Simulated assay, not measured.
Amino acid sequence: MDVLIHALVGLHIIGIACLLGGFLTQTKAMGRGEARMVPAMLHGALTMLVTGVALVGLHQAQGHTVNTVKIGVKLALLVVILGLVYVKRDEEKVEAAAFGTVGALTTANVFIAVLWV
C-alpha cells in the first residue's frame, strides 16, 4: 500500500508541475496580453484532482486521520482552478486577471499543502 501511496504522491507532484509550469511558460505572454491556457495546465489540474482524491481515500482506508478542513480548502481552490482552465482553454487570449488567478491559486494550494499541518 505504501508503494501505491508514494506513486500517487509522485503523480500529484507531476500534476502540480504541469499546471504551474504551464502557467510560468506563459507569464511573459501574460504581460503582453497574449497568454493562453495550454493543454498541460488542464491535464495537470485533472491529474491533481484524481490523485488527490485517491490519496485521501487511501489514507482514510488505512485508518489515518485526515484534516478535512485542509483537504476541503485545497479541493475548493482546485475546483476554481480547474473551472477557469477548462472554460478558458479554447480562447486565443486570456485576460491577465483570470490567468494570474490560476497561478496565484496554484501557488496558494502548494503552500497550503506544505505549511498547513
Rank of each mutant, 00 (worst) to 15 (best):
L105C: 00
K93N: 06
V56T: 13
V50L: 15
L49R: 15
R32K: 15
R32H: 11
V102F: 00
W116A: 03
T101K: 09
M30Y: 01
V102A: 00
T25G: 00
M41Q: 09
T101P: 06
N67M: 02
V73Q: 02
G15I: 09
G57P: 10
L4S: 06
A35C: 05
L42S: 05
H59S: 13
K88T: 08
H43P: 10
A113T: 03
L77F: 10
A61C: 05
H64M: 08
T101Y: 01
G21Q: 03
E34W: 06
G10C: 15
A104W: 04
V87Y: 09
H6R: 10
A7E: 11
M41W: 04
V110D: 03
V94T: 08
L8D: 12
A7N: 11
L58M: 07
Q60S: 14
R32V: 09
L77S: 02
K74N: 11
V80P: 07
A7R: 14
T47A: 10
V79N: 03
L75V: 14
G103C: 07
T101N: 12
M48Q: 15
L24S: 11
Q60T: 15
L58Y: 11
G52M: 06
V117E: 02
V38R: 14
F99N: 07
Y86I: 11
G52E: 05
V66C: 01
L115G: 02
L42N: 04
G10T: 15
I81K: 04
G72C: 12
G31V: 08
K74P: 00
M1L: 13
I5G: 08
D90H: 14
M1W: 12
V102P: 05
V85S: 03
A40H: 04
V53A: 15
V56H: 02
T101Q: 08
I16K: 01
T27P: 01
G57A: 07
G15F: 06
H43A: 14
V56S: 09
V85C: 00
E34N: 11
L115A: 10
L58D: 06
N67K: 08
M30V: 04
L78R: 11
N109C: 00
E92I: 13
L82W: 02
K88G: 05
V85I: 13
A113V: 08
G100M: 00
R36T: 12
W116F: 03
I81L: 00
A7H: 08
G57H: 10
